[in-house]
Design a protein around this nucleic acid. Structure first.
Length: 291
DNA sequence: TTCCAGGTAGCCG
DNA sequence: CGGCTACATGGA
């Protein structure tokens, strides 16, 4: 996708030929720091910056930013160089049962998020609902993260760095309502603080190597590891299986899902190459069509 | 009150 | 390996 970026007044406009749906992008369970405004725009924090995003006709409008940041950060973050229309067609062609789900989630894009933030966010996510995950991450950022600025009347904080969280005490971090995951967060923060380059090397390594590294982190199992790979390492084969995906695969695709290698291979065969993106359509459909 | 949530570690056979 | 269970917390 070629995206023309122009500045009009204080706003940056990105021309796009694809259908973009911000609600589907920001509320599909891949990220936890974006909130919808009354005008349907979204405001959020990523990479230490606060921006406001809206969509109008064939363009994305970014407020509180600069041409440089849009070029260097947000274009990549919003995954604007990928052709989702083509990917959708390939996914449906290979597994027609997913057609309705892809139609439902049309406009989703997989954000390219920071590895560290994604790691901690999904450690927190285990065995909890999305609204509570968001609450804990907000509390963590307020309590430990660096202050950024006030935007439209609200104070915004960076996601805490590894060293900021490595200094946290178990009693203090409990105030962020992370429950038993507090010890995981602190231990992983200490690990990454000592060797942060190791985490950031994984996107260049093979799927298997990245998986093995992530599984070595305390509190990271196969599901969380696959979320980290998919949402922050551009490893689009990753297919995280949580309770929603398990139920949806069993209900709509009639396959029994367990932890075995056999099941993993079967799923990979159903959703090859862009499996992680297919997974996201299934997840988003599942959480919005529960019965 | 009980059940559940974008699960994992620890333990046991 | 596969099968159990404890784990914090708030919403339904």
């Amino acid at each position: 996708m070629k995206n023309e970026i122009i500045k009009i007044g204080n706003h940056i406009h990105i021309k796009t030929t694809e259908y973009i749906n911000l609600a589907h992008i920001f509320d599909c369970g891949q990220c936890f720091r974006w909130e919808q405004n009354q005008d349907n725009s979204y405001t959020g924090v990523a990479f230490g910056k606060v921006i406001n995003v809206s969509v109008n006709e064939n363009e994305i409008i970014i407020k509180n930013s600069s041409i440089e940041d849009v070029d260097n950060i947000w274009k990549k973050y919003l995954d604007l160089d990928k052709n989702y229309k083509e990917i959708q067609e390939k996914i449906i062609e290979h597994e027609p049962k997913i057609k309705e789900m892809v139609a439902f989630g049309r406009g989703i894009r997989l954000l390219n998020q920071d590895e560290w933030e994604t790691t901690i966010s999904f450690i927190i996510s285990q065995n909890r609902s999305i609204s509570l995950i968001k609450k804990s991450i907000e509390l963590l950022s307020e309590q430990y993260g660096t202050y950024i600025e006030k935007f439209k009347g609200k104070d915004y904080y960076c996601f805490p760095t590894p060293s900021q969280l490595a200094r946290a005490s178990i009693e203090d971090i409990a105030k962020c309502k992370v429950g038993y995951r507090g010890k995981y967060i602190i231990e992983v923060a200490k690990t990454i603080n000592k060797e942060s380059e190791k985490l950031y090397e994984q996107s260049k390594k093979t799927d298997e190597e990245a998986l093995a590294y992530l599984l070595s982190l305390h509190g990271v199992g196969p599901k969380v590891a696959n979320c980290i790979k998919l949402f922050s390492m551009e490893k689009y084969d990753s297919f995280p299986i949580d309770v929603w995906i398990k139920r949806a695969l069993e209900k709509y695709f009639k396959i029994k899902v367990d932890q075995s290698k056999k099941t993993e291979k079967r799923i990979k065969k159903m959703f090859p190459k862009h499996g992680g993106i297919a997974q996201q359509y299934i997840f988003y459909y599942a959480i919005n069509n529960q019965k």
